[in-house]
Design a protein around this nucleic acid. Structure first.
Length: 750
DNA sequence: TGACTGTGGGTTTTT
DNA sequence: CCCACAGTCA
């Protein structure tokens, strides 16, 4: 009994056994936070808390599943009845039950990013706005962030700040798009990703039939993992559930501000600070001992994160020994980088007896995976790529899914548009346009208009046939299970026939994908998992569709012995004996998108911190001086993050190696330390004699001094205020003409 | 209506 | 580089 408590250190144990009242666990990388969460839940159950009174919100469904498995080892089957999942999936589950209270059907569709963007695009067109000004991505991100900050379409026009910003970006009509978008989603019985949170908040806020009390009573204990990555809306929901008159405030948040990497989608570290203000009596536990990595890695991480101004100071330490120093590899091109990494993997496997699954390659963008895949394949090393275009985003898979969606929810506009003429049945663009127009004007769904449209008799027949086809599917759904139905649909819709007709290699693989989608549905039907808190299982097609809509690349089953390839973001929470962080170049990692904002750079640095702390024993950092990007070769400097690592933790005589291609420029001589290579021209200016002038005083024509580049003349200044960029000719260095952001550049007027 | 071709544009991370 | 879209012709 309770043996497991002895496996914990003092702080961890306190974090587990302090079950009553609000708790914040600040957990550095590798500090055993999953352990604390798991044991805490197990402990709660042992103390007599009913499993379904525990709500545990994790980052991926997979980690929720793994957690349940580990809890089961302590308390047995009860573990399955804990409510554990991601914010989105858990809330979707609640909404399935309660949707009708807020005017949505319980079989509502979940619009993915593609659906959302497609709808926004349609609306921009419908409202006669200029699609060049109204960039879909920009509009989407405005709408998404409005929702994440609880700004309804009604409220939006009153938000001076938002309206001014929209005007400034020449998109003053965003609020109208937002309004129409919301209405269209509702009409289609669809929620986008943000709605799963937003509508749940709205449900709790408007509180029909006292539904809020029901869930407050139900969830007596709430745990939130990766709290630093929650947004304003998620925190607002948490407060709805746990912060009220008479609440026991049994909330446990686990997080690490240094690992916050989702600010770009609205996550805010402020939630950690607010927690203290909102939940009186909050007890904080800091887990600082790292059980994962050896000391060089831990110290490198500590040193790097110090470059961030915004942070809760905390020092991670490890007693796993100093371990190996960090290895840095310079490559001349992305291809060479691929080869060098593959070579290093072969070497490590031999020298350190690693198996494939001990190794991970982490990159900033998914597009970088290709070169590594090529070399690993060539070397016959098994690998698995996570993320990127997922299986469920493939065209043929989405097509079949669209039929399934339409069968479940006939109002689903995006699904209907996708399949109305696939496979080809003679309903073309013109007809679809007429249909949309008619639907908009008569305020009906596309589906309802199918048999009302005034078109030539032939077309009318086609439309009716299509409606009839889907209706047969829907009728069948009451009698057959999801698998039978999907198989039937795949055949009757003609999808299988079309795919079989294509005998090319790609065609074959498309057919295979559809088959494995069907297999997946079969598996879903045969799986005997039960719904949390009940003895029943839910095999409905609509539950299946929900699962795949919220499926993340990390939920993928990792069976077998593979080298892991994934983005740094996806690697959060994982660990490997050996980690390669690749593509460490300015404009790639840190991404060029982050380059003009300090806070964005700090987020990139946290991402770098997350990346390197995934490594237990071996850490290799690589960069390439040239890289093929968007069809062009681009050259870039090594990432600033490399130079932020103290040299004592880096292999001093790292081998630069020989270029792998024959006709590349001869490499500069190896000078050992890393720092020297980074600074292109080392000028002997004593920093003590250097007095930078305020950036606002820099004007064209002045002679200025720069610590690294020496003396130069300001040729030109463009941009205004804090966006001023100076073109300066530094005649003491090789590549004399430089463009510097005056906001950041330290220059002394001479 | 549908197949085909050329142009042009964007260019991160994810639920 | 790759994808989406507009324009052309049968």
């Amino acid at each position: 009994m309770q043996n497991y408590l002895q496996e914990l250190n003092d702080v961890q144990r306190q974090a587990v056994t302090t079950t009553e009242g609000p708790v914040l666990v600040v957990a550095g990388p590798g500090s055993g936070k999953t352990r604390v969460l798991t044991f805490r839940i197990a402990y709660l159950i042992e103390q007599g808390v009913l499993p379904w009174q525990i709500l545990s919100l994790t980052f991926t469904n997979k980690s929720a599943r793994e957690m349940k498995e580990r809890i089961a080892k302590v308390v047995g089957d009860k573990a399955n009845q804990v409510w554990a999942g991601t914010f989105h999936s858990t809330f979707a589950k609640i909404l399935r039950v309660e949707a009708e209270k807020i005017g949505y059907p319980s079989n509502f569709t979940i619009y993915d990013t593609t659906d959302t963007k497609s709808l926004i695009k349609t609306i921009i067109k419908d409202l006669n706005l200029n699609p060049e000004k109204y960039n879909v991505n920009a509009v989407y991100s405005r709408i998404s962030s409005a929702k994440s900050n609880l700004i309804t379409p009604k409220l939006y026009p009153d938000m001076q700040e938002l309206m001014t910003a929209d005007k400034a970006s020449q998109r003053p009509h965003i609020h109208e798009i937002y309004k129409t978008y919301t209405a269209r989603c509702k009409k289609a019985g669809a929620m986008d990703f943000d709605d799963l949170l937003f509508q749940l908040y709205y449900l709790f806020h408007s509180n029909p039939d006292n539904v809020l009390e029901k869930y407050r009573k139900k969830f007596q204990y709430i745990l939130v993992d990766e709290f630093q990555d929650t947004n304003y809306l998620q925190y607002a929901i948490l407060k709805k559930l746990a912060l009220y008159e008479g609440s026991k405030l049994n909330v446990c948040a686990v997080g690490d501000d240094a690992q916050s990497i989702y600010a770009f989608r609205g996550a805010t570290v402020e939630n950690i600070l607010d927690l203290e203000k909102d939940f009186k009596g909050l007890q904080t536990f800091k887990l600082e001992q790292n059980y994962r990595s050896t000391d060089h890695i831990v110290q490198a991480a500590n040193a790097t994160i110090l470059f961030n101004k915004k942070q809760i100071r905390k020092k991670i330490w490890s007693d796993k020994g100093v371990g190996h120093k960090i290895k840095v590899i310079k490559a001349l091109s992305d291809t060479e980088e691929g080869k060098r990494v593959a070579d290093a993997i072969v070497e490590q496997k031999n020298r350190h007896h690693l198996s494939n699954s001990d190794i991970a390659i982490l990159y900033r963008t998914n597009a970088q995976s290709r070169v590594f895949e090529e070399y690993l394949r060539r070397y016959n090393i098994h690998y698995q790529v996570f993320g990127g275009t997922s299986f469920y985003q493939r065209k043929e898979v989405k097509d079949l899914i669209a039929y399934l969606r339409l069968t479940v929810n006939q109002k689903d506009e995006e699904a209907l548009k996708r399949v109305i003429n696939y496979p080809k049945r003679g309903i073309g663009k013109t007809t679809l346009e007429k249909l949309s127009k008619f639907a908009n004007e008569s305020d009906q769904t596309l589906w309802d208009c199918l048999d009302q449209l005034q078109v030539p008799a032939r077309t009318q027949g086609l439309l009716k046939n299509f409606k009839l086809l889907i209706n047969t599917f829907t009728q069948r759904s009451t009698t057959s299970d999801a698998y039978e139905l999907a198989t039937y649909i795949a055949r009757q819709s003609g999808i299988i026939k079309v795919l079989k007709a294509d005998t090319t290699v790609e065609g074959l693989s498309r057919l295979e994908n559809v088959t494995s989608l069907l297999d997946g549905i079969k598996e879903f039907v045969e799986n005997d998992e039960v719904i949390e808190g009940t003895e029943q299982s839910d095999k409905s097609l609509s539950t299946y569709l929900q699962n795949i809509a919220l499926h993340t690349s990390l939920d993928e089953e990792d069976t077998g012995n593979y080298v892991t390839l994934m983005s740094s973001h996806s690697a959060k929470g994982l660990e490997f004996k050996s980690v390669f962080v690749v593509g460490l170049e300015e404009t790639l990692f840190p991404s060029f998108m982050s380059m003009n904002s300090m806070s964005a750079i700090e987020e990139e640095r946290r991402l770098f911190y997350v990346s390197i702390t995934r490594a237990e024993e071996l850490l290799t950092l690589t960069f390439a001086s040239s890289r093929y990007r968007h069809g062009k070769t681009v050259y870039s400097e090594p990432s600033r993050f490399l130079s932020e690592i103290p040299l004592d933790h880096v292999e001093s005589n790292f081998n630069i190696g020989q270029p792998t291609t024959s006709n590349v420029a001869p490499r500069a001589r190896v000078t050992g330390g890393f720092k020297k290579k980074r600074t292109e021209a080392v000028l002997s200016i004593n920093p003590a004699d250097f007095n930078p002038s305020p950036s606002s005083s820099i004007e064209e024509g002045m002679r200025v001094l720069h610590l690294k580049f020496g003396e130069g003349e300001v040729i030109k200044i463009d941009g205004a205020r804090d966006k001023r960029v100076a073109t300066i000719n530094f005649n003491q260095i090789d590549n004399p003409e430089r463009r510097l952001m005056l906001k950041f550049a330290k220059l002394q007027i001479l």
